[in-house]
């Protein structure tokens, strides 16, 4: 990368939470079972079924929020995010939009022997996972086992300045989530996933360029490689005075390139609105303190 451009990266990390049962029902939160054996009316979204929050989910999210130096919201709630996909049985995902659990945190990354870089965290919110689609020739199959597995999404600010920093951020984050027992962070099993937003701007400029979202990077190394490829692609375009379109691209690890995934400029309308089946989250000061002291106790075990 020449010094003519500055790279701007933010990450959207999804971590499955280490709970015994799923987010809104009592099905076990486990991996690797036969398709469609770990299901019930609630996670299948059958007519008449209702979600009930697994309180452990909230405690783990609060643990992560405090470990990542976030401001914990005094008011937080679940919203419904609507889209049609066969692996989403209710045709909406229970997620958080306007009122996430926590905001404005940070994570320090340390480059070899160099100074600390503080990366801000925009938000941390909860959502349920969807199922998996499998295509076989002309037929498609859905495995609903993963439906309702608790996910925590952590969105960083656009503070990362190189693909290497992105990898270092993920490594630090993984250490924290593993250490606090929030997630087992197995990228190969999909319990940690990461999308990246990347844009370039002329060195010294204060405005952001058009950002590209990259999906399907299945390891920390892939994140760094995918971003390196994408940075080079964008630099080439910009150097030739071509336009970088805002779009979503998919990382093809075998060929080592990113490919166009979703049409350019297509903005989805998820029609978010507060989920009427779920009351606002119970984030009392007492609960936050309880989680905080448990976290300090853990810290004491090590230091």
């Amino acid at each position: 990368m020449s010094s003519a451009f500055e790279i701007i990266i933010s990450l959207e990390v999804q971590a499955e939470l280490l709970t015994k049962s799923k987010m809104f029902c009592s099905c076990p939160n486990s991996f690797g079972q036969k398709p469609n054996t770990n299901i019930c009316p609630v996670c299948l979204g059958l007519p008449g079924s209702l979600p009930v929050l697994n309180e452990k989910v909230l405690d783990l999210a609060l643990t992560a929020a405090l470990a990542l130096n976030c401001e914990v919201s005094s008011f937080s709630r679940f919203d419904r995010k609507h889209y049609f996909c066969p692996d989403l049985p209710k045709a909406y995902q229970i997620s958080q939009y306007e009122f996430p659990i926590a905001k404005n945190g940070y994570l320090d990354i340390i480059k070899e022997g160099e100074k600390i870089r503080r990366i801000r965290i925009d938000r941390l919110h909860l959502e349920e996972d969807a199922g998996k689609l499998q295509h076989d020739g002309s037929a498609s199959y859905v495995d609903f086992n993963r439906c309702g597995v608790p996910l925590m999404e952590i969105v960083s600010a656009p503070d990362l300045r190189s693909p290497e920093e992105a990898r270092l951020f993920l490594e630090s984050l993984k250490r924290i989530l593993l250490y606090t027992g929030v997630s087992d962070c197995k990228m190969e099993e999909g319990s940690l996933r990461c999308d990246a937003n990347i844009s370039l701007r002329p060195a010294g400029s204060r405005e952001f360029g058009a950002k590209v979202k990259i999906k399907n990077m299945n390891s920390f190394k892939a994140v760094q490689k995918g971003l390196e490829y994408e940075a080079a692609r964008q630099e080439k375009l910009l150097s030739a005075r071509n336009v970088v379109y805002q779009e979503t691209r998919i990382w093809d690890g075998e060929r080592g390139i990113t490919l166009e995934m979703r049409g350019k400029g297509e903005e989805k309308d998820y029609r978010y609105f507060p989920d009427p089946d779920l009351p606002p989250l119970d984030i009392s000061p007492g609960r936050v303190e309880r989680v905080r002291s448990a976290l300090k106790l853990r810290a004491g075990e090590v230091y």
Binding site: L44, G45, L46, P47, R80, H82, F84, P86, P89, K90, A91, Y92, V142, R271, F273
Partner: peptide, 11 residues
């Protein structure tokens, strides 16, 4: 609109 979105012929 939201509650009836699930009737999609899949399941």
């Amino acid at each position: 609109f939201s509650n009836l979105a699930r009737y999609d012929g899949v399941q």
